[in-house]
Structure formats: C-alpha cells, structure tokens
C-alpha cells in the first residue's frame, strides 16, 4: 500500500551561499494512513519546516514529497491549494480563527471553498461542532470562547472537510494542563473514530508519549523514530 506521506531526501534551505540555513537535511520519512505521529525536538530542529512542507504550504528545496503518491513538488500554487482544501486540515498553536466571526461560520469556511451548498454546509458544521463538544456555542465569536474552546473550534474547522491528514502544530501550546489533555484526547478520539491521520508537533514529552509513533528532530535531521503503539488496522 502506498504510504499517505513519503519524504525522500528532503532538504529545505533558507537563503543561499555563506548565509544559507539548512532547516531540513536529507529527511526520509514515511507515514501510513491512520497513524498518530508526534514530532518532537528542540526549537530550530526543523519540525515546523517539516510541518509546512507536509501541509503543502512550502516546498522542499530538493528531494521529493509524495502525498498519496502525488509528487507535490510538481504541483503549482493553485494545485497545492486545492490539495490542502480537499485532503489536509490544520490546527495551529495560536488557533488562527477569524475574529468577529462565529464558531459556526469559522467551521463553515473551508466548506465555502469546497462549494458545499449552504444548507449542507450548515448541517455539517453543526455536526462537527457537536462532535468536538461545542453544541450550543455555535454563535459565539472566538473572543467569547476560552482557549480550549477556541482550539476545539479550530479542530472542528480542520476536520469538517473530512481530510485524510490533520496537521497540528503545537495544538496545546497555549493551554493550561487540564485543557491540554482535553485537546489531546479529542485529537486521539478523532484519529480513532474517523481514521484521520494525525501529525502533531509538540515539545512536551507527556504529549508525545500519547502518540502511536514518536519522531524526534535535531538539526534538521530525524534523530529518532519509535513506535509506541502498534498502528491499528483501520476500522471500516
């Protein structure tokens, strides 16, 4: 079976010549569908760069990144946007919700770009908000929600399009410890129930331990890659 994600000798270099910074050096990595991967490492180790490449927000300087066998490097900007639209969901450390816009509208946003008709859009967004435990909060704006609730909205927004890959960049970084585990549990549950592949960057060991697989980056290379739990066969 083709892995969902396959990186081959991926390098990402910022700048050129003497001042060039190698954010990633010859990274080889495969992630199968349904996995829950934690990416760890000190800051500057290349984990964010790797996430950006996985999310098709950035492209490798050299090497190939295949998503479901598609060479992302050969896609243009618009094609990469379409790939993000249909197959990838993002959750960010800073939530990145649209301000002065209700939770419901935030969750509907990706469906607008997918041209889902209004009625169905609304239904799916409501369903998704319910799934992340925010039923009854759909008309609150981000400013009226707590950090944990905002991150739930962000997760709902990322998953409402039923993507195959969910990229979470320090999703619990801005939350207190009780909320951290709630969000982590939510991600684990979504992985388990919906089969969405999750790649989560974190610098907190207790978060990383909950993942099925833990990859540690250092100086732009993969330092260690261990499986903590067997990858469960996807339930139909």
């Amino acid at each position: 079976m083709t892995p969902l994600i396959s990186l081959r000798k991926v390098c990402r270099v910022y700048g050129a010549g003497e001042t060039a910074v190698w954010a990633l050096r010859d990274v080889d990595l495969e992630i199968d569908e349904g996995d829950f991967v934690a990416i760890m490492g000190p800051s500057g180790s290349g984990k964010s760069t790797c996430m950006n490449i996985l999310g098709c927000l950035d492209t490798p300087t050299s090497g190939t990144y295949r998503f479901r066998g598609i060479d992302v490097g050969s896609l243009d900007r618009t094609q990469r946007a379409l790939l993000r639209r249909h197959a990838i969901g993002f959750v960010f450390q800073g939530f990145q919700l649209l301000g002065r816009t209700t939770a419901l509208e935030n969750v509907e946003l990706p469906l607008i770009y997918q041209r889902v008709p209004k009625r169905e859009r609304r239904r799916r967004a409501m369903e998704m908000l319910d799934a992340v435990g925010l039923a009854g909060r759909e008309h609150h704006t981000p400013a009226e929600l707590s950090g944990g609730q905002q991150q739930r909205v962000a997760i709902a927004r990322a998953l409402v399009t039923r993507p195959s890959l969910l990229l979470a960049d320090e999703p619990t970084g801005n939350l207190d410890s009780a909320r951290k585990f709630e969000i982590l549990d939510l991600l684990l549950r979504m992985n388990r129930e919906r089969g969405v592949t999750v790649v989560m960057v974190t610098h907190e060991p207790e978060m990383g331990e909950q993942a099925a697989r833990r990859i540690v980056f250092r100086d732009g290379r993969v330092e260690s890659d261990e499986r903590l739990r067997p990858l469960e066969a996807r339930t139909a």
Binding site: G55, L57, R77, T78, A81, L82, R84, R85, H86, I88, F90, Q96, L97, L98, L109, P110, Y113, Q114, R157, T161
Partner: peptide, 16 residues
C-alpha cells in the same frame, strides 16, 4: 494578513 493566511491554509487559491 493573518486572515488571508488562514484562508490560504484552509485551501483558498490565490485567485479566490
């Protein structure tokens, strides 16, 4: 700018 970034991450094309 941030809103534009969010829209693009979600899958809005440059044209949109």
């Amino acid at each position: 700018t941030r809103e534009i970034g969010i829209r693009m991450a979600i899958g809005a094309t440059a044209g949109e």
